[in-house]
Amino acid sequence: MKRVYLILACLCLLAFAVMPAQAFTAKSLTVTLAPNGDAQINMQYDLNFLEKSAVFFRMADPATEVKKAFASNTGREVTVNSVTDSSADIVVPSYAGVTRNNGATTLTTPAISFLRAQEVLKRYWFAPLVSANFAPQVTTITFPDGYQETFINSLSMPAVSHTMSV
């Protein structure tokens, strides 16, 4: 009987070792624009146990990765306001382009892509062991007048323009 339990334990251990672990999972991305084009950005995500441990022991820093992603997409300086093991709040000045014409203001956001993050992950030795999902389940861009654009499970979002009348 002990031999059966030992064999079952070994099979379970082997299954866990071979099965990819769900790693970083983007839950939501919320971009709230100010009239001058500045953006307050909140990203909600899930980390697995190992990633949470790495954050706790300061071996990994989700804020740095989120900051890099938005800095590379926008070419702007990004400020991290807060970060936890499940969310990051950042500010990006002049995130959206602002044009004014005949009393109307148009804000245009840059395209957002997490493809680079996915490609970077593939370079690591542990990549076959994890299954990261960088596509936010819901991405919402909110303009100052309350207009919203929403994307579902999109790894890349196009530039979005919206004209507000005064």
Rank of each mutant, 00 (worst) to 15 (best):
N133T: 12
T25R: 15
I90P: 02
K2F: 07
I41P: 02
A60L: 08
K52R: 14
E119Q: 15
L47D: 10
N36H: 03
K52T: 06
A60K: 02
S86L: 08
S82M: 03
Q137H: 11
A26D: 05
N81D: 13
L47P: 06
H162F: 01
F126I: 15
A26L: 08
T32D: 15
A23Q: 03
T74Q: 14
I7N: 02
F56Q: 08
V166S: 06
D61I: 03
L13N: 02
S87A: 15
K2R: 14
Q40F: 08
Y5S: 12
T99I: 06
V138D: 13
A117G: 04
R3V: 13
V18T: 11
A135M: 03
N102G: 02
S165Y: 04
M157W: 00
L115A: 13
K52L: 02
T140G: 03
F57V: 07
F16I: 12
W125C: 05
N101H: 12
T106F: 01
A9M: 10
R100E: 13
S87Q: 15
A159Y: 07
S113G: 10
F151M: 06
A34C: 00
T109H: 05
T79C: 00
A159T: 09
H162Y: 01
F57N: 10
A127R: 02
E65M: 11
F49W: 02
T106V: 06
L115M: 11
S165V: 08
T64N: 14
